[in-house]
Design a protein around this nucleic acid. Structure first.
Length: 565
RNA sequence: UCCGGGGUCGUCUAAUGGUAGGACAGCGGUUUUUGGUGCCGCGUGUAGGGGUUCGAAUCCUCUCCCCGGAGCCA
């Protein structure tokens, strides 16, 4: 596969918008963006696209991109998420420079501006309950009903708003609403709520300083303006908010070009659930071990899985930015992961389902013990700089159960009675017999080896059709391997995304196969990602050195063999 | 129902009036001390109908389909 550098530049709808702005002289050619996560959860693969767009566009045009926490709703936000987001961002390749920004830093300015709107008759305090307000909003194609408080005197709204601020009005008893148009065809413009009261809730940064909190719509554009953002990039579902975004900005005395919102399609992936609510379900029900479980699509999960951050970035660059609703196939992401891992991951041999093999003509030493030899193997055929390693070989070793068949089908090239194969880096061996258990399962294979073939080459030049992987029985390391190829693909037919996820009964959400495995040659440092040859790429758990997670499988060779037979 | 946004190979994505191309997936071949990697080859897919034009994925028009929008969430 060509490297991303060689691939045609992905279309980027946002880039085109910025170029057009620059050509028109908007913002004087300045480009500034922001990445505005709400600190109420962990970053996932979907955020990766937003991150690369927000930071990428700024970098491409010589501007800056702020990390701004959109912490306007104290109900769900927490400082632990702030730290996690900063950490994940750095891992992805976007280390924070300086201090992060917070929407909560602008609460005072926002408050002053709100009073200004009240004074101009553009906002009012509504003392109806939420249900009533919602009902009065009307519906699609149905008219709205104006609140009886809509035309109350400015002084009355102002006094009430100050009492809201001072904590003198109970939560739910009043809100501040923009006074726009209750008949507007765009529901967002039907007198949206600007402030709600939260007297009891503790805000992760402002504590109990405020009793009122701005809504997203009232805070976002203004925060952008305060920071000097030029291009406020967000996902498509905010499209209908743009008129409101603009409306607020137009009412304020801002002496400069106000920011402009541009929406693009969010990243969706097959076999992947990114809904915060649904992921939280998996955590809460104990189906996964936590937000950083390698099965999770969170950045932390992918990190523990061994996904290289550069592969995620390359993927995001490649898929481009458009306004078309789409869902990328997980295979595409995986191909970027494999491409990167193929050239960086060290090769190791391992077997998942061991089959004992005994070399009947293997020499013994003066004590009658089998001789141990050490053979040299390259660490990565894709990169000679990764060097070689020595691996112990003796007369008893394990191979994969699939690598021996008593009655081989056509085109099966591995070990079978009478056939000679190469043990990678060691010797040619020929199967001479095998033992079975009461059920007829092969439990041991006997072979003879050719001492002339050390290293895996025959002096007479004869060829073998297969090179097999092995681990010395005496030297193999026990390890546990958690096997799974895709986040939710294993046992769920079709797409386990969105509503399909909700339709699954809780047991079916147990989607992952975990395999207890005995001998694995695990000469791997914690956190390292290796390719267990022919089995796929595995990440060693940083915290538990003997636990491996399969990050991406190789092709399903067993299925291929069966197909070809 | 109203408003807004979308519709190009299986899936994504190029081509903005001039040969519909690429990636992933799939299939076949080849190389290979990983049945991996690499390399080579394999494709009539512009939602539908009208129209403008020498020429339409692109412009006009009608229709169909999908997504978003009625939180004191973001």
């Amino acid at each position: 596969m060509p490297r991303p550098d060689d691939l045609p530049a992905a279309a980027n709808f946002v880039r085109e918008v910025v170029i057009a702005d620059n050509e028109a002289g908007t913002f004087g050619g300045r480009v500034q963006t922001r990445f505005p996560p709400e600190p109420n959860g962990y970053l996932h693969i979907g955020h990766a696209k937003a991150i690369t767009v927000d930071f990428g566009i700024a970098a491409e045009f010589g501007g800056i991109c702020n990390l701004r926490f959109d912490d306007t709703n104290p109900d769900t936000e927490d400082t632990t998420y702030v730290d996690a987001i900063i950490d994940d961002l750095a891992w992805l390749g976007y280390p924070l420079e300086g201090e992060p920004l917070y929407a909560s830093d602008y609460f005072a300015q926002l408050y002053d501006w709100a009073e200004l709107l009240i004074q101009r008759g553009l906002a009012y305090v509504d003392e109806q309950d939420g249900e009533t307000i919602s009902a009065q909003r009307g519906g699609y194609g149905k008219p709205g009903v104006e609140s009886p408080y809509r035309d109350r005197p400015v002084e009355e709204s102002l006094a009430l708003f100050r009492r809201m601020r001072d904590g003198e009005i109970a939560a739910g008893a009043a809100v501040l609403r923009a006074r726009i148009d209750m008949q507007h065809e765009n529901m967002q413009l039907r007198d949206p709520v600007m402030y709600r009261i939260r007297t009891e809730t503790h805000h992760h940064r402002t504590g109990s300083r405020w009793s009122i909190y701005p809504t997203y719509d009232w805070a976002h554009g203004q925060s952008d303006a305060i920071e000097g953002v030029t291009h406020s990039l967000c996902t498509l579902e905010f499209d209908s908010h743009r008129p409101l975004y603009d409306w607020y900005l137009e009412q304020l005395p801002l002496p400069f070009d106000t920011p402009r919102q541009t929406e693009f399609a969010r990243l969706e992936l097959t076999h992947t659930v990114t809904s915060k609510r649904r992921l939280a379900t998996l955590v809460a029900d104990g189906i996964v071990d936590g937000w950083d479980d390698p099965r999770m699509p969170t950045l932390r999960g992918l990190r523990r899985r061994g996904y290289p951050p550069s592969a995620i970035r390359d993927f995001c660059d490649f898929i481009g930015v458009s306004r078309t609703n789409s869902r990328q196939q997980i295979e595409l992401l995986e191909s970027f992961v494999r491409t990167e891992l193929n050239r960086t991951a060290l090769r190791r041999m391992a077997v998942l389902r061991p089959l004992r093999v005994v070399v009947t003509n293997w020499p013994t030493d003066e004590h009658g013990e089998p001789v141990v030899e050490y053979v040299e193997l390259v660490n990565n055929p894709e990169n000679v700089d990764d060097g070689t390693r020595t691996v112990p070989f003796t007369g008893v070793f394990h191979i994969e159960q699939d690598d021996f068949m008593a009655e081989p089908p056509p085109k099966y090239f591995r070990l079978s009675p009478g056939r000679e194969v190469r043990l990678r880096g060691a010797y040619f061996v020929t199967a001479t017999g095998f033992d079975t258990d009461a059920d007829g399962n092969v439990v041991e294979v006997q072979v003879t080896y050719d001492p002339e073939t050390r290293g895996g080459n025959a002096p007479d030049g004869r060829k073998v059709k297969s090179t097999m992987h092995w681990v010395s029985a005496a030297h193999a390391v026990d390890a546990t391997v958690a096997l799974y190829d895709r986040l939710f693909a294993a046992e769920v037919p079709g797409e386990a995304t969105g509503d399909a996820f909700d339709d699954l009964n809780p047991d079916s959400r147990e989607l992952l196969t975990g395999a207890k495995v005995e001998p694995v040659l695990a000469e791997v440092a914690p956190g390292q990602v290796v390719q267990f040859e022919r089995l796929g790429y595995f990440a060693a758990d940083p915290d538990r050195p003997m636990l491996f997670h399969r990050t991406v499988g190789l092709r399903d060779e067993w299925a291929n063999i069966q197909k070809r037979s």
